[in-house]
C-alpha cells in the first residue's frame, strides 16, 4: 500500500513545516490529556493506595469494580457526559459542553480507574515489604498511605504513563463532548477521525505517526527518570 510511504512523507512534511494548525492541535492534545491525567492522579493514586491499605466492608467489591472500569468504553463515557453537560442536562448551566474542560473531564473519568487500579497493585507490592516495619514504628493508616505513595512514586509514574497513553489515544469520548470544533476542541485523535472521514488516509496516518511519536517521547522521558531512580535505589 503506497499510503504508508505517503503517510511517512506527510508526517515528516507537517513536522518540518512546523504547521501552525498542527502545533495548535498537538498543544491542545497535550494540554487536555496531561491535565486529565494529573486530575485522575490526584484522585486515583490516593484511592488506589487506600484500597491497598484498608480492608472495609465492600472494599473487595470496589476493587473488582475498579478493575472492570479500566475497560470503560470511551463512547459510553462521552455519551453520559454529553447528557449531563448538555444544556438540557443537569450540568447544562455550567456551559462546559464543547469546551476543552469537558474533554478533560471525559478523559479524567476514563483514566482514573486505570491509575487507581495500577496504583493499588503497586502500593500493595511495596506494602508487603514495608508492613511489619511500619507496624513496628506504629504509623497511623493515614501516614502509612502517604508513606507508601511517596516511596512508590517512581513506580507510580508507570501508572500515570499508562493513563496518559489511554487519554491521548482516546477519541470516542472527546469527539462527543468536545465536538471536534476547529481551533477550539480539535485534538490529534479527532483530527485523525476527521481526515479519515475525508478519505485523507495518508494524512490521517501521518498524524497518527506524530501522535505515536509524542507518546513514545513521554514514555521515554518517564523511563529515563525511572532508570535514574533505579540507580539511586529510590525505585
Amino acid at each position: 500500500m503506497q499510503d504508508f510511504g505517503s503517510a511517512v512523507w506527510q508526517a515528516l512534511g507537517l513536522v518540518a513545516s512546523f504547521d501552525r494548525d498542527l502545533l495548535e492541535i498537538v498543544l491542545l492534545s497535550l494540554r487536555v490529556s496531561l491535565t486529565a491525567v494529573l486530575a485522575a492522579g490526584l484522585v486515583g493514586l490516593p484511592l488506589g493506595a487506600v484500597l491497598a491499605v484498608l480492608r472495609f466492608p465492600g472494599s473487595g467489591l470496589l476493587v473488582v469494580l475498579l478493575n472492570a472500569m479500566m475497560g470503560l468504553p470511551p463512547v459510553v463515557v462521552g455519551l453520559v457526559l454529553y447528557l449531563l453537560l448538555s444544556h438540557a442536562g443537569v450540568l447544562g448551566p455550567l456551559n462546559l459542553l464543547y469546551t476543552p474542560t469537558a474533554m478533560i473531564v471525559a478523559q479524567a473519568v476514563l483514566v482514573t480507574p486505570i491509575i487507581a487500579a495500577l496504583a493499588r497493585q503497586t502500593v500493595a507490592d511495596i506494602r508487603g515489604e514495608y508492613r511489619e516495619q511500619l507496624q513496628v514504628l506504629g504509623v497511623s493508616r493515614r501516614t502509612e498511605v502517604a508513606t507508601l505513595l511517596w516511596d512508590a512514586r517512581y513506580s507510580l509514574l508507570t501508572a500515570m504513563v499508562a493513563g496518559f497513553g489511554r487519554a491521548i489515544a482516546e477519541v470516542g469520548a472527546v469527539i462527543i463532548v468536545g465536538g471536534n470544533i476547529n481551533h477550539v476542541t480539535r485534538v490529534m485523535t479527532t483530527t485523525i477521525a476527521l481526515e479519515t472521514s475525508k478519505g485523507n488516509l495518508a494524512l490521517a496516518l501521518g498524524l497518527g505517526m506524530i501522535l505515536l511519536s509524542l507518546t513514545i517521547l513521554v514514555n521515554a522521558a518517564v523511563q529515563g527518570l525511572r532508570a535514574t531512580a533505579a540507580r539511586t535505589a529510590y525505585a
Binding site: Y130, E132, V136, L137, G138, A233, Y234
Partner: peptide, 30 residues
C-alpha cells in the same frame, strides 16, 4: 507500644530514602 519498642528484622526494611531520612522518619512518627 510503638514508642516503647524497637524491632530489627533479619532483612532490614529501609524506606526508599536517604540513610538520614530513614532515621528522621522514625523519629517523626514517634
Amino acid at each position: 507500644r510503638a514508642r516503647r519498642l524497637g524491632f530489627v528484622f533479619q532483612k532490614p526494611v529501609l524506606l526508599r530514602r536517604s540513610a538520614a531520612a530513614n532515621i528522621r522518619y522514625a523519629l517523626k512518627v514517634a
